[in-house]
Design a protein around this nucleic acid. Structure first.
Length: 572
RNA sequence: GCGCCCUUAGCUCAGUUGGAUAGAGCAUCGGUUUUCUAAACCGAGGGUCGUAGGUUCGAAUCCUUCAGGGCGCGCCA
C-alpha cells in the first residue's frame, strides 16, 4: 500500500463530495496535488498542497480554503489525528496510532511485495548488445547493470520483462574480426607476422580465440576465403561465449539473443520497408552530405531513405549504401519491426553515450512501424571514466589495451561493481576509481548498506530471534521514539521511490534510497552508545518497538537489494 | 553549424515529476569505544544551485537568452 496515494484519494474524494460547500467551481484537475513527507523541521507526518493548487482557479484564498478543508477532514478521515495549517496553505497532518498500526501491519502482510506497483505490462529491454568482436569493457558494464536492475525493478512491479541482447554479427567489423583471428592462426601455425592493417583487432584475446579454433580443427587455413565460413562461426561462438561468461559473472542473464544476421536473412526488412513506403515514411531520394567532419567518398546518389526528420531528427537517414546494400540502420529498423510484431507494451533500449545521435531515428522508426502504438524509450548511459592511481585511465578496444569486465572482476567483487555502476544518475559521467573501490572501506557505499543488514542480523542472533513469515503488531505496542518514527517515515516512502524509479526508468534512485535508510539505522544504533535508553537489547531482550522497526528495515533492504541483485551478508 | 547530456559546498554527486531553512560522501577541524559489530556515530566550518530574464502563492526543478564542459553528427557498425 502506498499511503501517500490512498490518503490523497481520501482527501480528494472528500473535497469533491463537498464541492459546493467549499465554493469550488473547478475540481476536475488535481494535477500537481500531492501528499508527501515534509522537511524534518516541520515535524508533521504528512503534508498536502491541495489548497494552494485549488485556490487559484477558484479565486479563493488558499489559507481560508485550508481552514475549511481542515474542518471537513477532521470529522471524516479517522486516520488523521490532527491537522495544522502552515503559511501559504499547507495542510500538515499527523497520523493517529491506529493509522501507524494499519500501515505497519500492511507492510508485514505485503512483505516481499512491499513497494511493488502491481502493474502487469510486458516489456522488452534491449541492453549490452556489445559487438561480438571482443570481451566486454567497463563502459558496457554500466549499461549492463543499468538494464539488469531496471528489468528487476519492472519485474518487482509485476510486469513481464524480456531481457534482450542484439548480436551485431553482420557487416564489415565482423569480417575484420574474423580476419584478425585468421591472421593470428597463421601467426601461430606458420609463424607469419600479424598485419598492421588499420581496422584489424590486435588484442591478446584474439590469440586465445585463434588457439581454441586451432585445437578444434585440422584445417590448414591456406586461404582466408575458403576457411571464412568456418572461421566466422567459430570466432563468433567464442567471442559470444566470452561475453556471456562476463555477464554471468556480473549476475546478468539475458532471456533472448537476437542475431542481426538472422534478421538480415529473414524477410523482415522487405516487409518493413513495404509498410513504410505505404505510409510515406520511406521514399527514394537524395541526402545532403553530413554537417560534421567532411567525408571523402561522398556521392549524392538516389537511394531509399527513412524520413526521420518527421520525428525531430536532424536529417533523413539512408537505408541503402551507394552500392545498394543495406545500412546498419536498415537492419536495425528490421530488427525493431520484429520487436514491434512481438507486441510488447513497452520497448526500452539502453544505449551508450556514443549512440545519442541514434535515438531520434530509431524512436521514429518504431513510431512509424507501429503506427504510434508502441513506445520505444531510449536511456543513454554517459561514459565511465576510469581512474587508477589518481589519474585517468584511457582505453581503446582496437588497440587492445582496455580494462575488460573480466579484469575488473578479478579485482573487485560483483556486489561493489553493481552498486557502484548505479551510484550515479545515468545522465552524468561516472568516475570509477579503482583504488577507492578496492579499499573496501566506508567510501564504498555498498558496504555501508550491507553492514546495516549485518548489524540487524547480529541483533537477531543475540536474542535468538527467528523472523516469522506471518507477523503483526498490536496497537498497544505502538510507542515509537523519535528516531524510530524517523525511520518509519523513511520506510513509508519506499513505494514512492519505487514508483519514481520505475516511471522515469531511473534505477539509481534505489541505491541512493537504501544508503539513506542505512544512515538512519546506523545513527539510531549509535544512540545506544550515548544513552542506554536507546539500546536495542537490554538484559538479553529486545523491545517490541525496536524489533518492529528493524524488521521493517529488513523488508525494505531485502526488496531493494533484490532489485539490485546485490547480496546481503549476515555477518561481516 | 546542429542534436543530446551536464554545470548545486574545496572535490565527487543526490535532490520527491514546482513546495517550507537546498542535502549526502570525501577533504578540513574537533569529539565518541570497559557497554548490542567504531567497516560506525556526533558536532563545526563551507552555497549568488553557471549567467540574465520569464512563468506563479512558491523555481535548483518549467520556458527563453548567453557562457563553459562532455558525447555525437557515414553512404561505418
Amino acid at each position: 500500500m502506498n499511503i501517500f496515494e490512498s490518503y490523497l484519494q481520501d482527501i480528494t474524494s472528500l473535497i469533491k463530495k463537498n464541492q459546493k460547500k467549499l465554493n469550488l467551481k473547478q475540481t476536475n484537475s488535481f494535477k500537481g496535488v500531492n501528499l508527501e513527507i515534509p522537511p524534518p523541521n516541520i515535524g508533521s507526518d504528512l503534508s498536502c498542497n491541495i489548497c494552494m493548487i485549488l485556490a487559484k482557479p477558484n479565486n479563493l484564498d488558499p489559507n481560508n480554503l485550508a481552514v475549511q478543508v481542515r474542518d471537513l477532514i477532521r470529522g471524516h478521515i479517522s486516520d488523521f489525528k490532527d491537522i495544522e495549517i502552515a503559511k501559504p496553505g499547507f495542510l500538515n497532518i499527523n497520523l493517529s496510532n491506529e493509522a501507524y498500526f494499519n500501515i505497519i501491519n500492511n507492510i508485514f502482510l505485503e512483505d516481499n511485495k512491499f513497494g511493488s506497483l502491481k502493474t502487469n505490462d510486458t516489456y522488452n529491454i534491449e541492453f549490452v548488445s556489445a559487438n561480438p568482436t571482443g570481451p566486454m569493457h567497463i563502459g558496457h558494464c554500466r549499461g549492463a547493470v543499468f538494464g539488469d536492475v531496471l528489468s528487476n525493478l519492472l519485474k518487482f512491479n509485476g510486469n513481464k520483462v524480456t531481457k534482450e541482447y542484439y548480436i551485431n554479427d553482420y557487416g564489415t567489423q565482423i569480417k575484420n574480426f574474423v580476419k584478425s583471428v585468421y591472421l593470428r592462426i597463421r601467426e601461430i601455425k606458420y609463424k607469419e607476422n600479424f598485419s598492421n592493417e588499420k581496422d584489424l583487432y590486435p588484442g591478446e584475446y584474439i590469440k586465445d580465440i585463434a588457439k581454441k579454433v586451432l585445437d578444434k580443427s585440422k584445417l590448414k587455413f591456406d586461404s582466408f576465403e575458403d576457411s571464412y565460413d568456418f572461421l566466422e562461426k567459430e570466432s563468433l561462438h567464442y567471442s559470444m561465449k566470452m561475453i556471456k561468461s562476463d555477464l554471468e559473472k556480473l549476475g546478468i542473464l539475458h532471456d533472448s539473443f537476437v542475431s542481426e544476421k538472422s534478421i538480415v536473412n529473414s524477410n523482415a526488412l522487405q516487409k518493413a520497408i513495404e509498410k513504410l513506403k505505404k505510409t510515406k515514411h520511406v521514399e527514394e531520394g537524395f541526402l545532403e552530405p553530413p554537417k560534421g567532419e567532411e567525408i571523402k567518398n561522398w556521392k549524392k546518389t538516389k537511394k531509399l531513405i527513412f524520413k526521420s526528420v518527421l520525428f525531430g531528427d536532424d536529417a533523413n537517414r539512408a537505408l541503402q549504401k551507394n552500392d545498394g546494400s543495406w545500412t546498419y540502420f536498415a537492419n536495425d529498423l528490421a530488427y525493431h519491426s520484429n520487436k514491434v510484431l512481438r507486441k510488447y507494451d513497452k520497448l526500452i533500449n539502453i544505449l551508450g553515450a556514443d549512440h545519442t545521435g541514434y535515438v531520434k531515428r530509431i524512436k521514429g522508426a518504431v513510431q512509424a512501424l507501429s503506427e504510434n502504438k508502441t513506445i520505444l524509450e531510449c536511456k543513454v548511459c554517459q561514459l565511465v571514466k576510469l581512474f587508477k592511481n589518481g589519474s585517468p585511465f584511457k582505453m581503446s578496444k582496437r588497440a587492445g589495451d582496455f580494462i575488460s569486465v573480466n579484469d575488473l572482476l578479478n579485482e573487485v567483487n560483483r556486489d561493489s561493481i553493481r552498486f557502484m555502476m548505479l551510484n550515479r544518475s545515468n545522465d552524468v559521467e561516472l568516475e570509477f576509481d579503482f583504488d577507492k573501490v578496492l579499499e573496501k572501506s566506508k567510501e564504498n557505499p555498498v558496504f555501508y548498506v550491507q553492514y546495516c543488514h549485518a548489524r540487524i542480523q547480529s541483533i537477531f542472533r543475540l536474542i535468538n530471534f527467528q523472523v516469522k513469515k506471518k507477523r503483526n503488531i498490536k496497537s498497544t505496542e505502538l510507542n515509537f521514539n523519535k528516531y524510530e518514527k524517523e525511520i518509519l517515515k523513511k520506510i513509508f516512502e519506499w513505494p514512492k521511490i519505487v514508483k519514481i524509479a520505475s516511471n522515469k526508468y531511473e534505477p539509481h534512485r534505489i541505491p541512493f534510497y537504501l544508503y539513506e535508510l542505512a544512515t538512519l539505522f546506523h545513527s539510531y544504533w549509535s544512540k545506544g552508545n550515548e544513552d542506554d535508553e536507546f539500546k536495542f537489547i537490554k538484559n538479553g531482550k529486545a523491545k517490541q518497538n525496536t524489533m518492529t522497526v528493524i524488521q521493517l528495515i529488513l523488508i525494505v533492504l531485502q526488496n531493494g537489494m533484490n532489485i539490485l541483485n546485490v547480496s546481503l551478508p549476515s555477518k561481516m
